[in-house]
Amino acid sequence: MKIKFLTIYAVGFMIFLYLPVLFLPIFSFNDSAIVAFPLKGFTLQWYENLANEPGMHQALINSLKVGIATSVISTILGICGARAVTRYEFFAKKSITSFVMLPLVLPEILVAISMLVVLLQLGFSLSLISVALGHILMCVPFSMAILISSFEGFDQSLEEASMDLGEGPLMTFFRVTLPVVAPGIVSSLLITFTISLDEFIVAFFLSGTEPTLPIFIWGQLRFIAKLPNILALGSLMLLASFILLCAAEYFRRRAQRRTGTEDSVI
């Protein structure tokens, strides 16, 4: 009886979790400029409108630039951190690790205003670079978390064998370690890219005159006539995130199979 109740609860929970976001794609195909039931008819007009929106194209390019820079750099920093944590003991290991993971729990506005204050005090102007710097800071904890779990099961005797067979540390890393942990790295790249693509608060404070996609959407929210276009753009962004996340999950599971830590769920 108790199990039944929990099952119903779980299903209801999932519906509640997904339903609000599903209204975006539903109304993005609705042949009416007003978001209201009943639906009027099917149209692709709002998607076609996006093609003639130069501001959006620029925002998309900006987002891609920031996203790629963020995912590559935060994953490299994540690799260093995760490897240090899983492989070595060092001074104040626990405090240093917690400190690096801190952005996970800090309010984003604090990160954003602090970076804003420092960047402008130092005389830098705001640009896509400042957005990327902020996104990297926020993404490193996620990258570390993913990579630590994929490095943890790594069998060190493989590396020792490679060293015994005469490879140096660098070649050992590229020829032995990297291939084994590669799926975890791909997963980290995809997740951090997704976070950067969708991130709003830090980009809001640090983007200056070059908007990323969420900032572009924010600007358009003021114009009621643009609402259906935003629905179309938002639906495409949700779809992109969904695909990226599924790919990341696929690689994360492959990473766990390779290192033999199959049963860990998170």
Binding site: L77, C80, R87, F90, M144
Partner: peptide, 18 residues
Amino acid sequence: MRGFALMSPTFFYALLLL
């Protein structure tokens, strides 16, 4: 010590930017 060296890029990034 190697552990700290490996951790340092990540650590100093957070130190400098946070």
